[in-house]
């Protein structure tokens, strides 16, 4: 799988939620595009990642 331009292997059955947490992201603070489509936040637990996927993750920091 490609995540933010880097090639990463994901284990079978890994959910998007699990991947985000294990990669150090706080899922409440991110937006994710999976294969060019925005991934709804309420579906992070339902999305099973595949090694052919392409993932873009942006994490927001405070201040406005």
């Amino acid at each position: 799988m490609i995540a933010n331009g880097r090639e990463i292997k994901v284990g079978a059955g890994t959910t998007l939620q699990e991947f985000l947490v294990s990669s150090g992201y706080d899922p409440r603070n991110v937006a994710v595009e999976l294969n060019g489509r925005i991934s709804p936040r309420n579906a992070f637990n339902d999305v099973i990642l595949k090694n052919t996927d392409s993932l873009e993750i942006v994490s927001f920091v405070g201040g406005g």
Binding site: A31, P40, F60, G62, G63, G64
Partner: peptide, 26 residues
């Protein structure tokens, strides 16, 4: 201001308002 609010807004506009662009500050 908060990262949670930023992410919530960005996600909601991108999923619920197709066609709209989001320009975020972070």
């Amino acid at each position: 201001d908060s990262p949670e609010a930023k992410a919530m807004l960005v996600n909601t506009v991108l999923t619920e308002m197709p066609g709209a662009y989001v320009v975020s500050g972070s």
